[in-house]
Design a protein around this nucleic acid. Sequence first.
DNA 1: TTGTACGCGTTATCAA
DNA 2: TTGATAACGCGTACAA
Lengths: 338, 338
Amino acid sequence: MAKRPPGESVTADAVAKKVGLSRWTVARAFKNDASISIATRKTVLDAAEELGYLPDLLASALASSRSRLVALLIDDFENPHKLMMVEALTKGLQSKSWDVLLVNTPTEAHASSALLAARQRRVDAAILIGMYFAENEISSVLSASRLNKVVVFARTSESDDAISICCDDVLAMTEMTDHLLERGYRKPLYVAGPETISTKLMRQETFMSRWQDKRGVTPPSARVAKYSPNQAYEMLVGRLNDLPREELPDVIVCENDALAIGAIDAVRYGLGLRVPQDIAVSGFDDIGLGALPSYGLTTYRQPLDRMVQALLDLLDGGNADRGPIPGMLIIRTSTAQK
Amino acid sequence: MAKRPPGESVTADAVAKKVGLSRWTVARAFKNDASISIATRKTVLDAAEELGYLPDLLASALASSRSRLVALLIDDFENPHKLMMVEALTKGLQSKSWDVLLVNTPTEAHASSALLAARQRRVDAAILIGMYFAENEISSVLSASRLNKVVVFARTSESDDAISICCDDVLAMTEMTDHLLERGYRKPLYVAGPETISTKLMRQETFMSRWQDKRGVTPPSARVAKYSPNQAYEMLVGRLNDLPREELPDVIVCENDALAIGAIDAVRYGLGLRVPQDIAVSGFDDIGLGALPSYGLTTYRQPLDRMVQALLDLLDGGNADRGPIPGMLIIRTSTAQK
DNA sequence: TTGTACGCGTTATCAA
DNA sequence: TTGATAACGCGTACAA
C-alpha cells in the first residue's frame, strides 16, 4: 500500500480511538436519526472536527448503496433558461446534501452512454433537463441499468420509467394567448423550436387551438432547428423581408425567450421596424436578458422554485407527483398596446 | 444485506464465473495497459457486455484512491462566458473519462464548504472557474484537506497551492487598445467589474497604461459590482445621461461582454444614441449574443480549446505550466470606423 | 499471462 | 445506547 503523508485520510477509526469509543458510534454521531446520547455525539463531533474527519462518501455509498449523488444531463448550454434551471437545481440539491454530477450530452448517443456512466458512479437519480432526444432511447438504457429514478425536468415525459416535473404549459400558453388577443393583435406568427421538443411542450398546440377558438382562424407558424437567437433572426429576416407591409404579422409568438430575443433583433435590425409599434413579440421562460429595458420582453415565468421543490420531495422518498405546476405571465413592453 | 432484484449489480465476479476465469482477469480486460492476451480480453468483454457489466467506479476509487472525478466550482451562472467554459470543460473532461461534480458556490462560505464536500467525494482535482472570492480562504481549506490539485481556470492565481490556466490578458488588452487607437477613438471610458476580480485580470491596468503611453492621458473608468448587463446599463445611463454631448466618451471599453451588452443597450435605449456612430463599444470573451447582427460586438476571444487542453494535460500527470495563452481579437461593427 | 490474500472506509444487522 | 461481524466491489502487490 502506498504510504500516505500523515494527516491525510482521517478515518472513523482514528476518531473512535481518540475518544475511546467504537467506529460505529462515530458513524452514529454523523447520522441525524441515530440512537446516540447527546453527550456522546458532542464528544465525537468535537474530536472529529479536531482531527479534520469527514465521512468518506464513496465508502458510504459502497456500503449502503445510496450515494446521495444525482446526475444532471444537459444538452444545450446556449439556452439561458436551461442555465437558470441548472443554477436552481444545484442550489436546491446542495441544500439537501445532494451532490451533482454534471453530464454534457450534446447528442443522443452521448445521452445513452451518459446514463451508463452515471450508473457506474451509482447515482441515486438522473435528471434530464428538457432534452432534445427521444425517450425510447432512454427507456432502453434504463431497463438495462439499475438507475432508481429518472426525472425529466421541464418537459413532459411519455415514458413510464421517467417522472416528469414541469410547468403547466397549457395553462401558460392559454394565458399568453388571451393576453395577446386582449391587446388586439390579429395577425400572429408562431415561431417553434426543434420538432422533437415542440411536440412535447404543448405550447404550439395550445396557442393554435386557442386562437382558432377565439378568432376562427389558425395562425401560420415557422420553425427553427435550434433554440438560438441567431437562428430565429436568420429565419425571420429571410421569411419576412420581402413581404409587403400589410402581410407582415403584428405579433410574433415565440416558443421561448431565446427565439424571442432573436425575433426582436430581426424586427429592429433586419427589417428596420419597431417593437412593439410595428410588430410585437412574446417569449417564454423569462430569462434575464428579456428584462433589459431594450427588450422588455413579455414572457411566461416557469415556477422554477416549486419545480425544484417538487424534485427534492421526490428524491427524498416522496412520490408526490403533483402534475404540472402553474407559472406566471410577465407582461412587459414588447406587447404594449398598439 | 438487502436483497437486490436479480440482474442488478452485476459484478466482476459474475463475469469471471461466466467465462471461467478469475475476477482479476476480468479487471485486466478493462485496463488499457494490462498484460492480457487479446483472445482472453475479447472473451471477457463479450461476456461483460452480455451480462451488462461495467466496473463500479466507486469501488474502484475506494480501492485505488483515484476517482477520475473532478469538482467544478462556479459562482455566477449569469455570465454567459462562464457557461461557455463549463461546456468546453465538461466536454473535454468527459472525452478523457473524467466525470464532473458541479458545485454551485454563490458565496465564499459556500466555496470553502464546497471544497470539503469535494474532498468527501475524493475528487482528484478541483477547478475554480474564474471565481469572485479571495484565495487566501481557499488556501486555508486546501492545507487542511487532501485535495491533490486545485486549478484556477481563466484567472491568474496568487496562491502557491493552485495552478492557473488562463488567457494572456495583457497581450489581449494591448491588442484591443491598439485597435481602438488605430480606429481613432480619443475619449474612452473603461467599465470594470467587481474589484476582487478586476485586479486579477490585468485588463484595466493594461488598458490604462497602454493608453497613457500612446496618448499621454489616463482614461476615466467606472465600476459595477457584478458582471451583469443590467448593472452596466443602469450605471452608464445614470452617469452619462446628463452630460453634454461633447463630454460623452466616444468609446466604452468593457471588461467583458456581459457589461458590453448592457453598454450597447444603454447607449441606444438609455441615451438614444447610435452604436458605433456616436459611441463605440468593445467587450471581452466573445459570447454568442455579441455575434448577433444587432450587437456586432468587437471583443477578444479567449482560447478556450487550448485552455481546456492545458487542463487535461495537467490532470493526466503532466505539469505543463505553459503560462498564459494568447487568444484572438474579434473585430465587428461596434467599433467600426467613425 | 493468470491467480490469490488483503485492504480501501463505510454501513446493515444483530448481539450485548 | 453501544459493540462487533460481515459485507460493498474493486485494486495492489506478489506469487504461480
